[in-house]
Amino acid sequence: MNDNTNSILSARGLKKSFDKLEVLKGIDLDLMPGDVVGVIGPSGSGKSTLIRCLNMLEIPSAGEVRFKNRQVTNKFKLSGDGIGTGELRKKVGMVFQHFNLYPHKTVLENITQGPIVVLKETRELAERHAMELLEKVGLLDKRDVYPSHLSGGQKQRVAIARALAMRPDALLLDEVTSALDPELVGEVLQVIKELAEQGMTMILVTHEMGFAADVANRIIFMENGVIVESGLPSDLLQSPQTERLKSFLARHLRHSIR
């Protein structure tokens, strides 16, 4: 893999250990503009840890992460070369498995909180943009509702709108449908699909293989902290090269009802 200065996010030799347990054993990754990369693999393979290292919610034990070829550091503010977490996270948004909406704020306030405090937008501007986003995810009528009154699918759509409100260059989606009841998964996948079609650069950790195949232009299969296979969805899923991917697909597809 060559040094690609056009990538939005790139990782080189990324390693992460929690105490004695090595969860990431050396990851190289490039996320190009417009890429939709699906990350699949068994539990404990390091998928979530990987994307959490990309926005420094986890600090790598070794290796580097670059945003538009600027090295990402763990400091909030940075002078000089490189990029600090404060600036990085404005440009790279995240959506979490357990939504993490602010329970003490309404849907609208959840979405405007970041733009007002971090981007210093005026309330009017932030609210107008928030309502556009709510319209996009189909929840404009819920803008004054508190998160506890929403279904899981609705919460996740609000969470996506909240991440989009920062006008990011890329989105990290960490198993965003794994905590949802099956019948609510579709509405969230629909929003993600539309984002992909509109050209949003995304990397999504997911168990929804069918969805990944449909929406992603590249799939990465991880196991035990390394990338085992990577390539076009059709190639990986229909003609897996390694035994590990073959058995993962066999196990997974056997259990999937869809």
Binding site: L57, K90, G93, N100, Y102, Q113, V117
Partner: peptide
């Protein structure tokens, strides 16, 4: 998760 969500939008 609340801290993570807040930080992930660029808050200090």
């Amino acid at each position: 998760g609340q801290t993570e969500a807040a930080l992930s939008t660029g808050m200090s």
